[in-house]
Nucleic acid binder design. Structure first.
Lengths: 122, 122
DNA sequence: ATGAATGTACCACTTGTCTTAGTACACTTC
DNA sequence: GAAGTGTACTAAGACAAGTGGTACATTCAT
C-alpha cells in the first residue's frame, strides 16, 4: 500500500504524476512541513516500478524547493510549505483566468460564463 | 507565412497543436463553414515540417467532424461549425469547473475564489 | 488530353523521452 | 559492522513523434 497511485494509461510520465501528488498532498495539508517522505526504494517497491523513476521525481521536487533530501537520513517536506501552496493556487487561478478570457473572446458575457460554471458545479 | 504557429518546446505533438488551432479559429469565427483550408503540402512547406504530420492533424479533425477532406479538391471546414463551437465551450467550462473544485478542496471559499479571479482578470 | 494540385496510404528510419536494470559510492543510524 | 538512506552512472528496451520517400486516385485548369 502506497501513498501514491499511478495511472499507466495517461501520457503523463510516472515521475511527473508523483511530483503532482506530492504537491497536492502538501497543498491539502496531508503532508506537513518537515514530515518525512517514504524512501525512494520503498515507494518503488510499493508501486512495482523502478527506483530510478522515483529518484527522478524526488530530484525534480527538490529542484522546485518542495522537498529536501539528505544523504543517509531521508527525504523531507520543505519547511516552506506555505509558498508551495500559494504557487499552486496561483497556477490554478492563472489557468482559470486564461480560459475565461477565451470564453469572452468567443462572445460570451460575464453572466453567461458565470451561469454555465454554476450549472456545471451542481 | 502560415495561419498556424508551432511551439517546438512543448510536449504537445505538432499534429495536436494544429488540431487545437483549427478548432480555435473556427470557434473565433476566423474560419467559417465550408471555407477551404490550406493544403497538407502547403502547410508543411510553410512550417518547414513533414506533410505526414499535417495529414495526421487533418485526419484527426475529420474524425471529429470538424473538417471534411475531398480527394483532388481540398480540405474544408465542416458546415456544422455551431456544434464544434459548443463542444469547445463545454470543454473549457469543464476545465474551469475542475479547477474550481480543486481550489475549494484547498479550503478556499467561493468569495475568495471569485475575488482572486477578478483580480487576475484586471 | 495533359499537367498540376489535391487527399490518401504506405513503409523504413531517426530521434527523443520514459522506464527498466544493474552497479557503485557516501552518509547516517543503530 | 550492518542496514537503510540519497546519489550517480551506464546500458538497454519500449514507445511515440516526426521525417523522408514513394505511390496512387481524383479534381481542376489549361
Amino acid at each position: 500500500m502506497s501513498m501514491f497511485s499511478i495511472d499507466f494509461q495517461t501520457r503523463m510520465p510516472i515521475y511527473e504524476q508523483i511530483v503532482n501528488q506530492v504537491e497536492k498532498y502538501i497543498a491539502l495539508g496531508l503532508l506537513k512541513a518537515n514530515e518525512q517522505l517514504p524512501s525512494v526504494r520503498q515507494v518503488a517497491f510499493d508501486l512495482g516500478i523502478n527506483p530510478n523513476t522515483i529518484q527522478r521525481a524526488y530530484a525534480e521536487l527538490e529542484r522546485k524547493g518542495v522537498i529536501v533530501s539528505v544523504v543517509g537520513k531521508g527525504t523531507f517536506v520543505s519547511d516552506k510549505t506555505d509558498e508551495v501552496v500559494k504557487d499552486k493556487i496561483d497556477d490554478i487561478i492563472d489557468s482559470i483566468s486564461e480560459n475565461i478570457t477565451i470564453l469572452k473572446s468567443l462572445g460570451l458575457s460575464d453572466k453567461e460564463i458565470k451561469n454555465k460554471i454554476l450549472k456545471d458545479q451542481e
